[in-house]
């Protein structure tokens, strides 16, 4: 299973890409594969603020609903509105077009609490 090397990971299977104080966040390929075909995504409001570990979004497949957590604290500055009509983007490209939301992070050093690709891979089932 693909785990990009340049991202940070939460134990709850979110990924974070940090760029100039803006964190782009999505769920990992492992997460989408466990949930199977997604049919709905409940995204946060732009402007809402969250602490690390807060419930931010819900992703839903036909029979499952799963909470998505903020890996770091911040304010929502953008959500991926394409997912409203095309939640399957998460299944097709979880690390790219299937991103969920962007946070203006409060403290960039919070990513140090997250896992690197190697540690995250150890958390997932062997191929």
């Amino acid at each position: 299973m693909a785990v990009p090397q340049d991202l940070f990971y939460a134990k709850t299977h979110e990924w974070v890409s940090l760029n100039e104080g803006i964190a782009t966040i999505g769920i990992t390929d492992f997460a989408q594969s466990q949930l199977s075909d997604l049919t709905f995504v409940e995204l946060p409001e732009v402007g809402a603020t969250f602490s690390a570990g807060d419930e931010v979004a819900v992703v839903e497949s036909v029979k499952a609903a799963a909470d998505v957590y903020a890996p770091v604290a911040g304010e929502v500055i953008e959500v991926n509105s394409e997912l409203e009509d095309s939640p399957e983007l998460i299944n097709k490209d979880s690390f790219g077009a299937g991103w969920l939301f962007k946070l203006k992070v409060v403290k960039e050093s919070e990513v140090d609490n997250l896992l690197d690709a190697e540690s995250y891979e150890e958390l997932c089932p062997p191929e």
Binding site: K11, A31, Q34, S36, S61, A64, E122, L123, C124, P125
Partner: peptide
Amino acid sequence: HLGGSDAGSHGYL
């Protein structure tokens, strides 16, 4: 707990 290394390959459903 389904998010760990013992998660079944077929998925929970």
